[in-house]
């Protein structure tokens, strides 16, 4: 498998830390030192479906394929307005696709999990050209009266078109069941038989526990991937990590090794865009000419579950 086209889309509204400090008990200094985030984009006049379609159309255009040559649509999304139908079904027609699709929810690790699924579908002969779309609006899970979560997130969409090739070398997935460290509950309807009304709960994050688990498990994934492929950290050109917190990225780097320059970031501009963070960053790096054929690239992500996932590429175009 290889990636032959990328696209990304962000909402028009850019919100800085100073903007947030006008109504939250926070400051630019507080947010920047603890997270590395300086700004984020939030859905306001457009909706998630608009940016999902925009990123997808760009990725298909970049791939050189026509929409009718896409065999399958694989969507990573944690939550959106519709519990059903799935996001893949909602955006399929607007993207110009007629193929089947499905949604996955593996939290912020959705992109790497989708890559694993796409690779398997190709090897099984179910599809040749797959559009992977990661579209997320995590700002809508947060309690905006509190600074703990709301300052961390941004909305965005990233998409890639994958086809047959040999660039995708290996993948490692991890799951450690621990709901309480990070969760969001949507309200559901009440039946006459329930004792308590389940009204939902905005995103809850145990920051210190999450930090510790994210750093240690992602570093374990990456080191295991390197070891079983006979590689050292110095052999890797880019470590593209999920953009949740610059200090988590630094923590992983301290364990895995390598200079800061090999760990690119977009978190300063976009905040945590959940599963969209890696494809958005990849799209920008390809547009900037930073990704070159033959480069060895590690992608690693982690999120609610607790889940983590890492994969290894030797890049082909």
């Amino acid at each position: 498998m290889k990636i032959i086209g990328t696209g990304s889309a962000l909402p028009a509204l850019r919100v800085t830390n100073d903007d947030l400090a006008k109504f939250l008990d926070t400051s630019d200094e507080w947010i920047t030192t603890r997270t590395g985030i300086q700004a984020r984009h939030l859905l306001s006049t457009e909706d998630l479906y608009d940016i999902a379609v925009d990123a997808s159309v760009k990725a298909i255009k970049a791939s050189g394929l026509r929409p009718d040559q896409i065999d399958f649509l694989l969507v990573s999304n944690v939550a959106n307005l519709h519990v059903t139908p799935g996001l893949s079904a909602i955006v399929q027609k607007r993207i110009g696709l007629t193929c089947a699709g499905l949604d996955i929810n593996v939290a912020c690790a959705g992109f790497v999990n989708a890559l694993m699924l796409a690779d398997g579908m190709m090897k099984a002969g179910h599809a040749k050209n797959i559009l992977i779309l990661c579209a997320e609006e995590p700002t809508k899970y947060c309690d905006w009266k509190e600074r703990d979560c709301s300052v961390l997130f941004g909305d965005g969409a990233g998409a890639v078109v994958v086809t047959e090739g040999t660039a995708f070398k290996d993948v490692k997935l991890t799951m450690i069941s621990d709901r309480d460290v990070l969760y969001y509950e949507r309200g559901m309807e009440t039946t006459p038989f329930e004792k308590e009304y389940i009204k939902g709960q905005p995103l809850v994050m145990k920051g210190k526990e999450l930090f510790r688990t994210a750093v240690s498990e992602s570093a374990k994934d990456i080191n295991a991937l390197l070891k079983r492929n006979g590689l050292q950290h110095g052999d890797i050109d880019w470590f593209m990590l999920h953009q949740a917190n610059k200090r988590i990225i630094d923590g992983i780097r301290h364990i895995v090794g390598g200079p800061d320059e090999k760990y690119p970031t977009v978190i300063q501009k976009y905040g945590n865009t959940s599963s969209a963070s890696i494809p958005i960053m990849l799209d920008e790096m390809i547009a900037d000419g930073k990704v070159k054929a033959g480069q060895k690239i590690v992608m690693s992500a982690f999120g609610a579950g607790f889940v983590s996932a890492a994969c290894l590429w030797e890049w082909e175009f």
Binding site: T33, R34, G207, K208, F211, R212, V215, S216, R247, G251, H254, I255
Partner: peptide, 14 residues
Amino acid sequence: DSLDFVELSMLLER
């Protein structure tokens, strides 16, 4: 800050 302390405890564990 709280994250400094988490980072420090992880360094000491290693």
